[in-house]
């Protein structure tokens, strides 16, 4: 086995272990709730007067067989795994009889549409700003650095709350929340897209500002580290112009930043749950929020599983990519980061 293959196999094994552990936690922890969650649910349904007699019994049976609650725990786990493999995340408690996977698929595009552009744009602007600050130094560096540090340190939901109040309530420039105007139905028409865009800017801004700040801080310290490297001094000593040396520094400082980008995209689903809650944006965060309030365990489990898969996959791909790039770079990265 070549060293690279060994690296590949070990990494894969560790990530598989992490995945199995996460799935097990996802399965087991909600079952620690005292009593049978289905009993509580059905009792609530009966009290609400929504379903009665035969219908209630059918719902009860559906949940019991779906969870395999009448069987031992290990068998329940196997049932759970089997369902997962078929992409079946179960039936929602709160929006009966909607499938959890359908609810998630409906919310996911909103989350991706909100986060992905924010991550990409924030990454581009942040890196340019950080590199410039490191290179220019002086007051520009000081101003950009401290502002970035401050902005990136604000918990993202705090910034969201302040922006919502500042730009939609105190100074009503933007609509105060939601993904689209109240009473509209999501369709692919111009007027709907324009309406959705109007609701888009404020949550987008709250995310992009944080990303810019965080990336700028990281890029600046990477670039300063590179600025002090021997090769910079040597290139200067041979009369290579500064603007050319800057491209060296930028490229070398970039590598860890690319990793950061991949990881941000991976943690996209769980990265800004509360932003959506603050703005009432119809994505995964809002879905999770209402699921938690209504004790909709299958839905909560579905969302947490999605978050785990995204993050594990991104981490795994980044690790494998490093193995491909170069064993030396891999060693350097492992040692320094």
């Amino acid at each position: 086995m070549t060293p690279f293959q060994r690296y590949l196999v070990t990494k894969t094994a560790w990530y598989l272990l992490a995945f199995v552990l996460a799935v097990a936690a996802n399965f087991y922890l909600p079952r620690l709730i005292p009593g049978n969650p289905v009993d509580a649910l059905v009792a609530r349904m009966a009290a609400g007067g929504g379903a009665e007699g035969e219908a209630l019994r059918r719902i009860y049976q559906l949940y019991i067989s779906e969870f395999g609650l009448d069987r031992p725990l290990w068998e329940q786990f196997l049932v759970y795994l089997g369902n997962l493999a078929r992409g079946d995340l179960g039936t929602s408690f709160s929006v009966f009889p909607a499938k959890v996977s359908d609810l998630i698929w409906r919310a996911l595009p909103w989350t991706i549409a909100l986060q992905l552009p924010a991550i990409l744009l924030g990454w581009l602007i942040g890196n340019a700003l950080g590199a410039l600050a490191a290179y220019r130094g002086g007051w520009f560096d000081r101003g950009a650095f401290v502002t970035s540090l401050f902005v990136s340190s604000i918990p993202y939901y705090c910034l969201a709350i302040m922006l919502l109040y500042g730009l939609a309530v105190a100074l009503p420039l933007f609509p105060a929340g939601g993904g689209y105007s109240y009473g509209r139905l999501p369709t692919f028409t111009w007027s709907f897209v324009l309406d959705a865009l109007r609701h888009y800017w404020l949550p987008f801004l709250s995310l992009v500002l944080i990303f810019i700040g965080g990336q700028a801080v990281g890029m600046r310290s990477m670039a300063i580290y590179e600025l002090n490297a021997d090769y910079v001094n040597y290139a200067r000593g041979l009369g290579i112009p500064d603007r050319r040396i800057v491209t060296y520094i930028f490229r070398n400082a970039m590598l860890p930043q690319v990793t950061g980008l991949a990881l941000s995209i991976g943690s996209l689903v769980g990265g800004a749950l509360i932003t959506e809650i603050v703005f009432g944006y119809p994505g995964i965060g809002t879905l999770l929020f209402s699921a938690i309030r209504q004790n909709d365990y299958p839905l909560i489990q579905g969302v947490t599983l999605l978050i785990v898969i995204g993050i594990l996959l991104a981490n795994y791909l980044v690790d494998i990519a490093y193995g491909f790039i170069d064993p030396r770079i891999r060693a350097v990265q492992a040692g320094e980061r």
């Binding site: 560790w14 272990l17 936690a25 909600p30 620690l32 709730i33 947490t304 978050i307 785990v308």
Partner: peptide, 19 residues
């Protein structure tokens, strides 16, 4: 392994497990 599993997920699951 523990680092790669996002802590917010474990926190959410633990919190709903403990009433």
């Amino acid at each position: 392994v523990v680092i790669t599993i996002p802590s917010i997920v474990i926190l959410i699951l633990l919190s709903i497990a403990i009433a």
